[in-house]
Simulated assay, not measured.
Amino acid sequence: MIKASVPQQAKLNHVSIPARDLAESEAFYREVLGCERIQAPNFGFPVCWMRLGDLQLHLQQVGPSPELRTYQHFAVQVADFASAYHVLRARGAFEENTRYADLWILPGGEVQMFVRDPSDNLFEIDHPDVNAIDPSVFTQPLRRLADEEVQSEGHLRATLFLRGDLFAARD
Rank of each mutant, 00 (worst) to 15 (best):
P118W: 00
S25W: 10
E26Y: 13
R99F: 09
P18I: 03
A84Y: 08
Q8H: 11
I2N: 05
S65Y: 08
G92A: 03
L59K: 05
F28Q: 03
P66R: 07
E153F: 11
G63V: 11
P66N: 02
G109F: 13
G92D: 00
M113E: 10
G109E: 01
D21H: 13
D165H: 12
S83W: 08
M113R: 02
T159G: 00
A23N: 03
R170C: 00
D126C: 12
D54I: 03
R116E: 01
L122V: 05
Y71W: 15
E31C: 05
F74C: 02
L122H: 05
G154E: 15
Y29A: 14
Y100Q: 15
I105M: 12
A146Q: 14
G53W: 06
L145N: 09
F123E: 11
I38V: 13
S65Q: 14
T70Y: 15
T139M: 01
H155C: 05
A132D: 01
S5H: 15
D21Q: 13
F167R: 13
E31T: 07
I105G: 00
A10Q: 09
P118Q: 00
R144V: 00
A84R: 11
D134E: 04
I2G: 04
R89N: 12
R116C: 08
D165Q: 12
R89L: 13
F45A: 02
Q61D: 14
Q56Y: 15
D126G: 10
E24N: 11
A84C: 11
L68R: 12
V137T: 12
H127L: 09
Q61T: 10
A169F: 07
D54P: 06
W49R: 01
V47R: 15
I133P: 12
L68S: 10
L145W: 11
R20Y: 07
L156V: 00
M1F: 04
A93E: 09
G63S: 12
W49D: 00
E36D: 12
Q56G: 07
P128H: 04
N42G: 07
Q77F: 08
A84W: 10
R51E: 02
L68N: 14
D54M: 06
Q61N: 04
E149A: 02
E31Y: 08
G109I: 03
L122N: 07
P118V: 01
F43R: 01
A93F: 06
F81P: 05
G154R: 09
L166N: 07
P107R: 03
G164H: 00
D165C: 00
H58C: 02
V76P: 13
E36C: 09
R143E: 05
C48R: 15
R143G: 02
N131L: 02
I2F: 03
L33I: 06
P46T: 13
M50H: 01
R51N: 05
L156W: 00
H73N: 12
D117L: 06
Q151S: 05
E36A: 05
S65D: 09
